[in-house]
């Protein structure tokens, strides 16, 4: 591993259980400030649970989670969000019966600076120009790709220091997949760190700085994304044959 600049988020020796079943075995992941870090893994590898640990939706049995050097253990999800972590949940999870505008503004729920929030809404419309015409529409009536845009805009509205994304390209058309990856890069260039969980390894490694590979709750591989992309083990597991998208 290269010596990363400074850790923004760090999971160290996390062990998680669902009842009797252990999901994570001494999981350690670091997200450096300003980086895009990607967590790869197949089904039931514990990827989504990792997201839930970071967001405080699931409590680990042991281990430490720190954000900006302060522990997140014991904090509630809203408290963690207030520390500066925003989430783009799996399958987007918009508030289907609220309008697109209301959905985006819900992202600013933790903020109290009304004027700045209004400005940020305008900024989102330049970043996601398509949403401009959809503002009054019910969020549930949008296409999957458009919903993903709303989910990302919603996450950015809290002015987070880090965004965690659960399978941001899942179920999207190839056109939108490229668009989403492009946007993640743009967001990152604006100074927001990104931690994303992905099944689509080849795409994720395109934009990530570092990556981890999770297999049945254990990190089996990690390092700079560029190195991993050429790693034969990754190629065999994820990029081989027709699997590459």
């Amino acid at each position: 591993m290269t010596s990363a600049p400074e850790a923004l988020l760090a999971l160290s020796n996390v062990n998680t259980f669902y009842g009797q079943a252990q999901v994570h075995f001494d999981l350690s992941i670091t997200v450096a400030r300003g980086h895009i870090v990607c967590l790869l893994g197949g089904n039931a590898s514990g990827k989504s649970t990792t997201m839930k640990i970071i967001l405080g939706l699931v409590k680990p049995r042991s281990g430490e989670v720190t954000f900006d050097s302060a522990s997140l253990i014991g904090l509630s999800t809203p408290q963690i969000v207030r520390r500066g972590i925003a989430s783009v949940p799996e399958a987007r999870r918009l508030f289907a019966d609220m309008s697109v505008r209301e959905n985006i503004l819900m992202g600013a729920f933790v903020r109290n600076d009304r004027d700045a929030v209004a400005q940020d809404l305008d900024r989102m419309l330049t970043l996601f120009p398509k949403l401009g015409q959809r503002l009054a529409q019910r969020a549930g009536s949008l296409s999957g790709g458009e919903q993903q845009m709303v989910a990302m805009a919603r996450a950015l509205m809290s002015r987070p220091r880090m965004i965690v994304m659960d399978e941001p390209t899942m179920g999207l058309s190839p056109l939108y997949v490229d668009r989403v990856l492009e946007l993640i890069r743009t967001i990152n260039q604006d100074g927001v760190s990104v931690f994303m969980v992905e099944q689509n390894a080849s795409l994720a490694l395109e934009i990530a700085h570092e990556a981890y590979v999770l297999q049945t709750g254990k990190i089996v591989l990690s390092g700079p994304a560029r190195a991993l992309k050429d790693d034969p083990r990754i190629r065999d597991a994820y990029l081989g044959g027709s699997e590459a998208a």
Partner: peptide, 20 residues
Amino acid sequence: WAVRAASQDRDAAMQMGVDV
């Protein structure tokens, strides 16, 4: 707003910082 958001998706509302 928090009430409406929580009634549509409780977990997502929490991830927006809503105290359920």
